[in-house]
Design a protein around this nucleic acid. Structure first.
Length: 657
DNA sequence: CTAGGGTTAG
């Protein structure tokens, strides 16, 4: 029987990515006594490789040799590509070397090159490229596409740029897919501005171009740039797809921009992407970070296939809001279900433990990580455990752990220790940790401020001065603290010390009044003294206080005002919130993820409030750490003032002689 | 042989 009809069908199935059906058809073909030929093997090989079936692929290789078509270019290429997909470039290379005709064929070089790129073997890949040029084999755009991923890692920026020049010389940079790929290369190296330049200069932009830029911003944490570009994209009438939404949703999660997130969710539903696992994971993350755990959980429960990423997202969500017990339960459930945790899953469960004060449980997991799951803990895991011990007050144990580390501790590890010293007022260890951390991250302003505040709390003014001088010498500027408040569909931005709001006189008066009342309640002795100290430290009135009071002034009695803090809140503000919630006739709810266990029984009835989050009148987000790099989105109030502030704000202004 | 995608603290 002739193999032609079989081949036609085989090709169609492989084209439509129906690999399992394609392989079944191939087997059927053999059973029927039809001999596969050079037009059958490529599709069968591709299907088998795509399904990650090494055994079946090896069998296919034998069939190829028996049938004698191993010298056919298309078959040869498929064989090389198949071995590359199984991460065995050596086998691929063997096939390449054993069939000298490969030396003449662009496609064979291309297949092997993409294999080297996949395993990031820069040197071998590049020498093969040189060989190709020496042999006079023509280079096409696919060759370039195969090579570029080798330079798409942080640290390979200059290599990537040289290669870009090489593309220009070959005239291949004008190819649409090559320029898209170059754009991706730059953003993956972390050279986002460079990528943006390329993006702006591209004469023709397709969906993939937009997506590459959007994802690039998202992966580099430039969330507001993502939303800005997304707006522009819509204005250009480019129809977004699932990949676009993934980038946009992750940025919404970072910014707490739930309104944009909901809009995107509706679009996902109407465009039929609801079953896309990538999108569902992004939605879980977005809802969890924006405070709606119920919605996040509903999406999670509705997913038919949950990957380790889905689990990590939901575990992180519960952990972030202090529900350590649930996070731990979920983690155990995941393992029972046969999903192997990876490094990221451990980061999220360890953080959950530290936020909820589950110290012993967290330490158990840390040990099990190596013994049970054979995962080498990285510095990111150590920083979680240092945080875990540190919050529990076990500072010396934490210090010993850092000293015993196999891998070199990074800034985050020492930073976690420094943060713990702030909570437990330990100046001695703080000095030690600070010395290390500024060695590793000399320009991270946060650590200087942290130490300065530790000294201030210990009433060590000499220490404060020392740090301030250091900051001035290094020309480091503290960006102003900033809070967002969402009210009736608008987002308001408050800076610390901001006076540009129309209601600012009223706001400040109320802050003052409340502070006085609060002081009585929490038993602080002198308002004036503390205020002058704050001024001296350059803190002024905290932005969240302004935001809260704005909320109070503009709401009806009995309204619920929600303060969602993703970052560390200063002690002073906690006292303020704690006091205010007792005074005013609004229900003031605070969620401070990072210090939750210190306030477990204090503050508020947080237990069931997430269920109602959808209908809240006010939300306040803390954005302090995001401001330096990104501008806030959708902010009517004070945007210009923020920019002015950023330009003018220097230590000298805050300096008191 | 072929450009874009989800999870991680401080």
């Amino acid at each position: 029987m002739t193999s032609i009809p079989w081949n036609t069908q085989l090709r169609e199935l492989a084209k439509q990515c129906q690999y399992l059906q394609a392989l079944t058809l191939y087997r059927q073909m053999l059973r029927c006594g039809s001999t596969p030929n050079a037009f059958s093997f490529p599709f069968a090989l591709k299907s088998s490789a795509s399904l990650s079936l090494p055994f079946s692929s090896q069998q296919l290789h034998c069939h190829v040799i028996k049938s004698g078509c191993s010298l056919e270019p298309f078959v040869l290429t498929s064989l090389i590509s198949m071995y590359c997909k199984f991460n065995s470039v050596e086998h691929a290379r063997k096939v390449f070397d054993e069939n000298p005709i490969s030396n003449q064929l662009t496609v064979c070089y291309n297949a092997l090159l993409s294999g080297y790129a996949l395993t990031s073997r820069l040197f071998e890949g590049f020498s093969l490229f040189c060989k190709m040029r020496e042999m006079g084999v023509s280079v096409n755009s696919v060759t370039i596409l195969g090579l570029i991923p080798m330079f798409s890692e942080p640290g390979y920026f200059s290599a990537g740029m040289s290669f870009h020049c090489c593309c220009v010389k070959l005239g291949l940079n004008l190819d649409f897919s090559v320029s898209n790929c170059l754009l991706t290369m730059y953003v993956k190296c972390g050279a986002v501005e460079f990528g943006r330049k390329l993006f702006d200069e591209m004469p023709k932009k397709g969906l993939i171009t937009w997506n590459a830029m959007i994802s690039g911003y998202a992966q580099n944490g430039l969330a507001s740039n993502v939303l800005e570009l997304y707006k522009k994209m819509k204005a250009c009438r480019i129809c977004a797809d699932a990949v676009t939404f993934v980038g946009v949703l992750s940025s919404c999660a970072h910014l707490g921009a739930i309104s944009v997130g909901r809009e995107v969710e509706q679009q996902i539903e109407s465009s039929g992407f609801s079953l896309n696992p990538f999108l569902n994971n992004a939605l879980i993350n977005m809802y969890a970070r924006c405070g709606n755990l119920v919605k996040a959980r509903a999406i999670f429960d509705g997913m038919p296939m949950k990957s380790v990423v889905s689990w990590t997202a939901i575990i992180g969500g519960y952990g972030m809001h202090g529900y350590g017990e649930i996070a731990v339960e979920l983690f155990d459930e995941m393992i029972k279900g046969g999903i192997r945790p990876d490094g990221a899953a451990f980061v999220s469960v360890l953080c959950a433990c530290s936020h909820a004060g589950l110290t012993e449980k967290g330490l158990d997991y840390f040990v099990e990580m190596e013994t049970k799951h054979r995962l080498q803990p990285g510095p990111e895991h150590y920083s979680c455990v240092v945080d875990l011990l540190g919050r529990a007050g076990r500072l010396y144990e934490a210090l010993e752990l850092v000293k015993s580390m196999q891998v070199k501790p990074d800034g985050a590890v020492w930073g976690a220790l420094l943060g713990a010293c702030k909570i437990h007022h330990n100046v001695e260890i703080a000095e030690l940790a600070f010395e290390q951390v500024i060695e590793l991250e000399p320009t991270n302003i946060g650590y200087y401020v942290l130490l300065s505040n530790i000294y201030a709390e210990a009433e060590n003014l000499e220490g404060v001065l020392k740090v301030r001088v250091m900051m001035r010498e290094r020309n480091l500027k503290k960006d102003p603290g900033c809070s967002h408040l969402e009210h009736k569909g608008r987002v308001y931005l408050f800076l610390c010390g901001d006076q540009s709001h129309p209601q600012s006189v009223e706001i400040y008066r109320m802050v003052d009044e409340l502070e006085t009342l609060v002081k009585k309640l929490v038993g602080c002795k002198n308002n004036q003294e503390r205020r002058s100290k704050e001024l001296f430290l350059g803190m002024g009135v905290h932005s969240e206080k302004l935001a809260i009071v704005f909320g109070l002034l503009n709401s009806e009695p009995g309204t619920e005002i929600v303060v969602i803090k993703n970052l560390r809140v200063c002690e002073d503000c906690h006292l303020f919130l704690k006091g205010v919630s007792k005074i005013v006739d609004r229900q003031l709810v605070v969620r401070d993820a990072t210090r939750f266990h210190h306030f477990r029984d204090g503050l508020c009835s947080c237990k069931d409030y997430w269920e109602k989050t959808e209908d809240l009148s006010f939300k306040i987000f803390e954005f302090e750490n995001y401001i330096p790099k990104h501008k806030p989105v959708d902010c009517w109030f004070s945007r210009r003032r923020l920019q002015e502030y950023m330009v003018n704000c220097s230590m000298d202004k805050l300096w008191v002689d």
